[in-house]
Design a protein around this nucleic acid. Structure first.
Length: 992
RNA sequence: GCUCCCGUGGCGGAAUUGGUAGACGCAGCUGACUUAAAAUCAGCCGCCUUUGGCUUGUGGGUUCGAGUCCCACCGGGAGUACCA
């Protein structure tokens, strides 16, 4: 290849710009040339241990350490990328290139999450089939990413919509459907509880080892049940099951949604439409079975604390007790089970509350008991009448209403009384909407002396308040500070007023007085269990994962229903189940407030597809396909494994490849946990994708398909790139590119103008409507991909958000130009480096830079790496001749960040092979460190003198020098104290 | 309300276990080169009342020494919300 091809700039001949200056145009030529070379030579092809990826071009895996660096794969939206999107991709690319140079076998690839709402909505907008628009969007995104020089193994790319991929998504669903959670089973790793094949459950039913729920007293054996009865029993155990409880119905989107997709305000995360609770038959996944393990295993992975905390909070494990209260009802009494985290406060319970949906409310008396205070009746003539009205009012409240009114308690007496099992006290039973049906048991014991909500309620209805915990004696706090004003809610306290001595309780005596709260909880739990009225339990906030959507653009379920409505799993040989053509693939949406509307799946519009004749082992019969589709999270739950073995038609992933790339011993950095070595993506997936993915992985682990319990060992959240946007004086956004900066005003604030009018700056996201979008394509045209990469990597720490500032990009460009000039004569294009030995100072700087940059790269700090490389380059610029022995390591160290220009310079320096697999420079220990250091002499912490000393100076020698240097300040007096930290600091405390 | 994170020059940001605050870049200023400009190169560049003093959101504390540790407050961001 000739230097002239990309070096000569035709415009340079007219102006005075040197012919071989590194500028945008030259960068473009260099970059496209190297991208082509990498593609042709398969430079970034990672070698597999077996299978058809072990072909000639990739280097063979042979014992090299594997390193798997992965990005959260993107939705190919129609808008294309802006400069904020690829920050994480650039980070993983820099890391991948660095590890490749460390001699590791690096797996780095990119796929596309192409099902789901964004792709479908874009298709609906443009009136084209989703497959057409999705594939066009993928092509455009692939082009933008390719132009960035990302070092992907392009043989391993795929999209979730590919039939060869979707087949395995459906296959995994089938495995989950055919599994149940055996909480008594001891796993090979020693833990208790495991997913197992549904046949093991059937065996337990058959053998009588486990009673068949619902048929305990029927005397029927498993084989005497009808097919429909069996299916119904199994449904309650399967990990993928048809839910019978209320689900989130979003009429505005025309689909049901998972809890994770509903905001705190009760709106859909996408579109912000109201969401209603409706009883609809929908697919659900039993993620609650894994609640504890999903929390527990956070300890063995290297994730940001923030994300771990968000997952812990979302799962919301709380330890408490369930306690049975007897309730006197007209029909002879009912049992009420309550859940509490503070069983130690049972003696402070003065009333009880059930949620308005609670079953107990069907057993209320016909009339109010005598002496019922008027305020408890809510103005209603009978309990039943009041409860009906109260329930209706509670149901009509949106989640937002509940949030707004939090603190303002409402409620109604039920006419019933519950008996406290410890004290024997008769407690009035209320219903109130501050008790939620879907948490705990939907019923609580109210302790106004120890809980703010119960206290508020007690004040409103004039109920008794008893304190059963007082502040610790040495806390400086006193119960008198609370009485009549507030509950004492802290766990740090001493139990009081809690003994059966003066009560009518049955069973053994119990005295909690004087105990610390946690000890009292243990003691009371033992008592409850012994008395048979309760026990310690664990409760979760996490709900099962609603898994079906009424959408066209998703994976169909591998399920058909017989004429009798019994579901049947289709055999693996029938996979994939492809999407049919339908007359109209757009979702059926409704008035966003129409809670009574019913979902209508687009797939149901193709009757020929829905109704099929199949032979499922007992002769041809008519079946009806499930017309729901899976949520887009399905495809992204397991894609990381497919990169390992993308073309396998026999397995989801080959077990030897899994072992090599992700197994428990694949890489020292991931310890024994295994998993993806580095996973980079936005924090917005903390409780969505990352929770679902862990859940699926654990099922596959339990069932033996993978041998590591966690999918992602190290997680890193990149920050967001923010941007300035500008408005005119009417508040309309104006194009940011056309705004000019003005002088600072009187208060020091900068001013801005747009075509002469005043403009106002605001700060936030990059977006089309804000008219401040800058695309990678803009950057390629103005500076080239290397400068773009350099700028994004130098902006600051990768995990922090920061503003894009167009003006600063030029700094990176200048650095690359200076590096170029250090190697190439701008006018002639000749290589100018010298083969002379570097001088002592250059050697020092070079080796210190290598040591420092290596350290920075290990910790994913490209910003400080770049700063140090600039220092080295600036030093070389000042030399008469640039030594090859100094500039070559510099080029190698810069190459992960600005790979194209470095490849070009490397080849100009006479190297025939790409530098992608060149060994990372190693610092020569003889030249690391400094000749002399500046020691600082401080008096009372203030710098009073500086001394140039040897790094190995003896502390006593340094002390003498320091005392001499500041002798005049000490006035001849002996200092009170001298602290010597050789060779950097001498700190002197003078005499008074 | 609760929990977590973050506050450093005009701007983006540096600063091992507490040890010279402001690396590197942008912007700005001076000079060289140039008819001139750009580019490039060499310098300067926290603030003030400049032999010195002050300075990492504010006020305290611990320490010989605090951007870093502790307490309180102010400001910004994120998560979460009647979860018993």
């Amino acid at each position: 290849m000739s230097d002239n091809e990309q070096g000569a700039d035709s415009s340079a001949n007219i102006s005075s710009v040197p012919a071989y200056r590194y500028n945008a145009k030259m960068a473009q030529g260099i970059e496209e040339k190297w991208q082509k070379t990498w593609d042709e030579k398969g430079t970034f092809w990672a070698a597999n241990v077996k299978g058809d990826l072990t072909d000639g071009k990739g280097r063979h895996a042979d014992g090299r350490t594997p390193y798997f660096a992965m990005d959260m794969f993107p939705y190919p939206s129609g808008k294309g990328l802006h400069v904020g999107h690829p920050l994480g991709y650039l980070a993983t690319d820099v890391v991948s290139r660095y590890h490749r140079m460390k001699g590791e076998n690096v797996l780095h690839a990119m796929g596309y999450d192409a099902f789901g709402l964004p792709a479908e909505q874009y298709a609906v907008q443009t009136g084209q089939h989703p497959r057409v628009t999705t594939e066009a969007n993928i092509a455009n995104m692939r082009r933008q990413l390719h132009r960035m020089g990302l070092s992907f193994d392009n043989r391993r790319t795929f999209a979730t919509i590919d039939p060869g991929y979707m087949r395995w998504t459906q296959w995994i669903f089938s495995r989950i459907y055919d599994a149940w959670y055996d909480s008594d089973f001891v796993r090979p790793d020693g833990g208790k509880g495991s997913a197992r094949h549904i046949d093991t459950l059937i065996d337990q039913f058959r053998s009588g080892k486990r009673a068949i729920p619902g048929f305990e007293d029927s005397g029927k054996s498993w084989d005497q049940l009808t097919e429909a009865e069996q299916a119904d029993v199994l449904n309650d155990f399967r990990l993928a099951y048809i839910s019978k409880s209320p689900v989130n119905w979003c009429p505005g989107l025309g689909t049901v949604l998972a809890n994770e997709e509903v905001t705190a305000e009760g709106k859909s995360e996408r579109g912000n439409f109201p969401v209603f609770q409706r009883e609809l038959r929908q697919w659900s996944m039993r993620i609650t079975a894994y609640g504890h393990r999903l929390i527990e295993d956070l300890d063995i992975i290297d994730w940001p604390q923030k994300v771990k905390l968000m997952q812990r909070n979302w799962i919301g494990e709380s330890h408490g007790a369930s306690v049975h209260f007897k309730v006197e009802t007209p029909d002879g009494g009912q049992d009420m089970e309550i859940y509490t985290t503070r069983p130690d406060t049972l003696f402070g319970t003065t009333f009880a509350v059930v949620s308005p949906e609670h079953d107990l409310l069907q057993h209320v008396p016909a009339a109010w008991p005598e002496n019922t205070p008027e305020s408890w009746k809510g103005g209603y003539a009978t309990p039943a009448e009041g409860i009906k009205a109260y329930r209706l009012a509670a149901e009509s409240k949106t989640a937002q209403d509940r949030v707004d009114e939090a603190g303002e308690k409402t409620g109604l007496f039920t006419g019933l009384y519950a008996t406290n099992p410890i004290t024997g006290d008769k407690l009035p039973l209320f219903t109130a909407d501050y008790v939620l049906m879907d948490y705990g048991t939907g019923a609580i014991m109210a302790v106004p002396g120890g809980d703010q909500r119960d206290y508020d309620f007690a004040k409103k209805f004039d109920l008794l308040v008893i304190y059963t915990v007082k502040p610790l004696p040495d806390s400086g706090d006193d119960l008198a500070n609370y009485e009549g004003k507030a509950p004492f809610v802290s766990h740090d306290g001493i139990v009081i007023n809690s003994s059966t001595e003066h009560t009518q309780a049955k069973g053994d005596a119990l005295n909690l007085n004087g105990l610390r709260v946690n000890d009292a909880i243990d003691k009371v739990n033992q008592w409850l269990e012994a008395a048979g009225v309760g026990k310690g339990t664990v409760s979760y906030r996490l709900r099962d994962w609603l898994f079906s959507r009424q959408r066209y653009w998703g994976e169909p379920f591998p399920i058909v229903y017989g004429e009798d409505g019994v579901p049947h799993l289709l055999p693996d040989s029938m996979l994939p189940i492809n999407l049919p053509d339908v007359p109209d693939y757009s979702p059926k949406t409704f008035d966003p407030m129409d809670a009574e509307s019913n979902p209508e799946a687009p797939l149901s519009r193709n009757e020929d597809w829905v109704k099929v004749t199949l032979d499922l082992g007992d002769g041809p019969k008519t079946y009806y396909r499930d017309t729901n589709t899976m949520p887009n999270w399905a495809g992204s739950c397991w894609y990381y494994m497919r990169y390992l073995d993308p073309n396998d038609t026999e397995h989801m992933v080959d077990s030897d490849e899994y072992e090599y790339w992700m197994g428990p011993n694949h890489n020292k950095e991931s310890g024994k946990t295994g998993g993806v070595d580095l996973y980079v993506g936005g924090v917005e997936h903390a409780v969505l994708h990352l929770l679902y993915s862990r859940f699926w992985h654990k099922i596959l682990f339990d069932l033996g398909y993978v041998d590591t319990p966690e999918p992602f060992y190290k997680l890193f959240n990149q920050g967001m790139i923010q941007a300035y946007a500008y408005t005119d004086d009417r508040g309309q956004y104006v194009p940011a590119a056309e705004v000019e900066g003005g002088p600072a005003d009187k208060s020091g604030e900068p001013t801005f103008t747009w075509h002469g009018q005043p403009a106002f700056r605001e700060f936030g996201k990059m977006g089309k409507s804000l008219k401040n979008i800058i695309t990678p394509d803009d950057m390629y045209a103005r500076y080239g991909a290397d400068t773009f990469r350099l700028y994004e990597m130098s902006m600051g720490p990768l995990d922090e958000s920061r503003p894009w500032n167009d003006r600063n990009v030029v700094g990176g460009m200048r650095f690359l130009q200076r590096l170029w000039r250090n190697v190439v004569d701008e006018n002639t294009g000749e290589v100018t480096v010298s083969d002379v030995e570097p001088d002592a100072k250059t050697l020092k700087l070079l080796n210190n830079t290598i040591a420092a940059v290596t350290e920075e790269m290990e910790h994913m700090r490209p910003n400080t790496s770049i700063a140090k490389l600039i220092v080295l380059n600036n030093h070389l610029t000042g030399l008469k001749a640039v030594p090859r022995a100094a500039v070559e390591p510099l080029i190698l160290m810069l190459s992960p960040i600005a790979p194209h220009i470095c490849e070009e310079l490397w080849s100009k320096l006479g190297h025939a092979e790409s530098l992608a697999h060149e060994p990372w420079p190693k610092a020569d220990e003889r030249y690391v460190g400094e000749e002399s250091v500046t020691a600082v002499v401080q008096i009372k912490g203030k710098v009073r003198a500086k001394l140039e000393v040897s790094p190995s100076i003896e502390p006593n020698e340094l002390k003498d020098m320091a005392l001499k240097a500041v002798a005049d300040r000490l006035g001849g007096k002996e200092p009170r104290k001298v602290i010597v930290k050789a060779p950097k600091i001498v700190s002197i405390v003078p005499a008074e």
